[in-house]
């Protein structure tokens, strides 16, 4: 069972958290009433498409049974190591390739 570092609460057991998903996908700005094809496409990608990388993955988690904040972690989906964790509105640090 993973230990997940919540930026607000510190390392807590996995069963306090809910996995939300890919942190790199971004919901396009849909505020314009006339919807362009590009926006439609971008929105559809946001709703339906997910990368499934082997290795490092930037993802959102919610500390559901804790502070309830969403935050980003970078986790290796092969061995479940977590190398960074930041608040939802912060950028994950960049790492050299292959680390």
């Amino acid at each position: 069972m993973m230990l997940i570092p919540c930026p607000w609460c510190g390392e807590r057991s996995e069963n306090e958290f809910t996995y939300i998903g890919d942190a790199r996908r971004q919901r396009p700005d849909t505020s314009a009433l006339d919807v362009s094809d590009e926006t439609l496409k971008a929105h559809s990608d946001y709703v339906y498409l997910r990368d499934n990388p082997k290795g490092w993955h930037q993802e959102y988690w919610q500390h559901t049974s804790g502070c309830r904040a969403h935050f980003k972690v970078e986790r290796n989906v092969v061995d479940h190591r977590i190398r960074a964790s930041v608040k939802a509105d912060e950028e994950l640090p960049s790492f050299p390739e292959g680390r």
Binding site: T18, I20, R27, Y60, Q62, T64, A69, H70, A88, D89
Partner: peptide, 13 residues
């Protein structure tokens, strides 16, 4: 509640 929190935290901070 989680749906609202997600949109406030992530989509429209």
């Amino acid at each position: 509640l989680a749906h609202m929190e997600y949109h406030l935290d992530v989509v429209w901070p």
